[in-house]
């Protein structure tokens, strides 16, 4: 931890130095450790196994000190009547989609932050309060956040939630991949509690292999698609399903990283600060020329 803060300190001071000398071309690099580690972890969610017991919801609340009701109350299946979304008090929810035919089962889908490999929230955050950590988690740093909610505008999965009810220190809340637990070698709370082994925690690369193995072993059980493998440049959480993902209300997204175009534009406009400085020089030149021209005209007018 001490090492970590020292590195941050060095980065910050390097950045300030660069900023002062005016050569800082990409302060972007100073944003928190947004490294894509090849050993980053992920979770494979097999929605064909989930029974909708909602134990993961209970475990998540308990692990994050959010007021959870008794574990028995989570057996109540009436909540499935309406589609629910994660919010500031519930970081993960399970939704149920009715069975299609008589011979099929309803499908239960756990929803939480996807922990993108190239997260839009990390790119968008005005103060760099989000970071993609080495182990794959995308986490939020409450000390920096100013509550602008641009992360919520940016997120393609509509995940970050804001504490609208609080006037002081409202937080942006979302699944943090149990960063504090995994740090100590523990499993994420939802993975640990799941009685049906719906959730497999492991290296993302291996999970992708596993997912494709499952698909090729049981081609009748799964659609031939791992949601999250390529969506918005890849996500740490991956899904298998027996139905088209869009029927299960997964957003239809391309394979380009979510922040892609906006970062390209941004870096185009500010490429090494050349365009702004060139613009300044251009305006200065035009101003000087016009001023001289006017003065010459005045002189000529006076001569006449």
């Amino acid at each position: 931890m001490a090492n970590q803060s020292r590195r941050n300190f060095l980065k910050t001071s390097a950045l300030i130095g660069a900023g002062l000398t005016g050569v800082s071309s990409k302060p972007a690099k100073a944003a928190p450790n947004n490294i894509l580690d090849e050993n980053r972890m992920g979770v494979l969610v097999d929605t064909t196994v989930c029974i909708g017991c909602r134990k993961c919801e209970w475990a998540c609340k308990t692990a994050h000190n959010l007021s959870a009701q008794s574990i028995e109350s989570y057996n109540d299946r009436s909540v499935f009547k309406n589609m629910r979304r994660p919010d500031d008090k519930t970081l993960t929810v399970v939704n149920e989609y009715a069975a299609k035919g008589d011979d099929q089962f309803p499908v239960d889908v756990k929803v939480q932050c996807m922990h993108c490999d190239k997260p839009a929230c990390v790119s968008a955050c005005i103060v760099g309060a989000f970071s993609k950590e080495k182990n794959g988690s995308v986490i939020w740093n409450g000390d920096r956040c100013i509550g602008c909610r641009y992360c919520m505008v940016a997120c393609p999965f509509q995940v970050p939630a804001f504490e609208y009810g609080k006037a002081i220190q409202p937080e942006v809340r979302k699944c943090d991949f149990c960063f504090d637990r995994t740090k100590d070698g523990k499993l994420p709370a939802c993975v640990e509690i799941c009685p049906m082994e719906v959730l497999t925690y492991g290296r993302r690369e291996e999970l992708i292999d596993l997912a494709h193995q499952k698909i090729s072993l049981y081609p009748d059980r799964y659609v031939n698609n791992v949601y999250g493998e390529h969506e918005v440049g890849g996500t740490s959480w991956l899904y298998l399903a027996g139905r088209d993902f869009h029927e299960l209300q997964f957003p239809k997204l391309g394979t380009n990283p979510a922040p892609g175009v906006s970062e390209a534009i941004q870096h185009g406009i500010f490429a090494y600060f050349v365009p702004p400085i060139a613009l300044y020089a251009l305006f200065g030149g035009v101003m000087w020329l016009n001023k001289n021209r006017k003065q010459d005209e005045h002189k000529e007018a006076n001569h006449e």
Binding site: P27, A31, Y150
Partner: peptide
């Protein structure tokens, strides 16, 4: 905060 906490990729 943005004055001292920079994120160059952020349009905001």
């Amino acid at each position: 905060h943005p004055l001292i906490m920079w994120n160059g990729t952020s349009v905001l």
